[in-house]
Design a protein around this nucleic acid. Structure first.
Lengths: 193, 193
DNA sequence: GTCTATAGACCGATAGAC
DNA sequence: GTCTATCGGTCTATAGAC
């Protein structure tokens, strides 16, 4: 996807400027990393004048915080949408489907949450990015608990380790089939419980 | 000065400037990330004047390349040192020991190879950082093949997925015990094969 | 080979007109 | 609220003395 398409994505329905800025920043940060993404990049992609950013955000760091918050919100929405399935196994397998659908993007830019954590946790004093792991982990533990498993925490970790580890390999080897194959394995594992 | 004297200088006495620069860069990149690490940071840590860097490296990117090469060399040295064990299982368990010993550093800054891949693969056209995954993967596959496993490739992926995934969680949750526990699980798994 | 000084580009942030 | 213009600082890279 080209930069102009990123810009289009951020502006297609012309949401408010603040939202356009955060959307553009979120996508650019995923594709380029936090430190490579400049305010000029974000302003251009969001079609907002550079200086105007400072009406919505006091500092560059505040935009990065907003990017993390956007991902947290996305995670919570995904979790909520999984609630439509009536059993823990169906919810877990629906989640696996969501992750498998992201295989191509992950092969190009890595897991949006994992790579953001890896970059921010190195230098940030607040460990807000860790929520992107903690929230899914807590939800997973809940599902395994509902399945009557005493080792729900360990199973939740195993699930997330498999996904994040596969995302790292999928990205490093630039091979989306790794993620698709792992999704199949995870589905069979859930069925076997 | 002969080549052997240069090599000697770089190991026995205070290392040569080029090596000091690459060592400093490697550590800073692990702790701060590629984009946050400036030439001034590296020069200061290596105790080399800023402008002098350009006698050893044409561009900043060349230093980053040297950092990747240093890690590749480290991986190859680790693999070579595992050769002293006489069976594949002992070699695999020795590797697990090496990884477990890094738990604390991983909790603070992530896996040096995984986080470097995650950052560089987003924007770099050459995919040199991917070697940091490919080389261990090939070695692991070899060990499982020696164990008579037809599914050696899958087992190698499973091993590396477990390690890299655990590194991401260990870092995001800043909890080294995650890596230590996973090391124990991996050891038992190898024993069970 | 080594080092100082600084050019030239870019970035985050601000001032101030409208 | 919006936007232009630009400041001050920092970064990569170079020039040139020694």
């Amino acid at each position: 996807m080209s930069d102009s398409e990123v810009a289009e994505n951020a502006t297609r329905t012309r949401p408010g400027k603040r939202e356009r800025l955060v959307r553009a920043a979120t996508e650019l940060v995923h594709r380029q990393g936090v430190e490579r993404t400049t305010l000029a990049d974000i302003a251009k992609a969001a079609d907002v004048p550079l200086g105007n950013i400072y009406y919505y955000f006091k500092t560059r760091d505040e935009i990065v915080d907003a990017v993390v918050d956007t991902h947290v919100q996305g995670v919570e929405e995904t979790i909520e949408s999984l609630g439509r399935h009536r059993t823990p196994k169906k919810r877990l397998k629906a989640l696996i489907g969501v992750l498998a659908d992201r295989s191509d993007v992950i092969a190009s830019f890595g897991c949006p949450h994992g790579t953001l954590c890896s970059e921010l946790e190195k230098t940030r004093d607040d460990h807000e990015a860790g929520r992107l792991i903690k929230i899914p982990l807590a939800w997973l533990e809940e599902q395994f608990t509902l399945l009557g498993r005493r080792d729900a925490r360990e199973l939740a970790i195993k699930f997330l380790v498999s996904y994040q580890g596969t995302a790292v390999l999928t990205h490093a080897l630039r091979d989306p089939s790794l993620m698709r194959d792992e999704a199949t394995r995870l589905e069979r594992w859930i069925d076997s419980l």
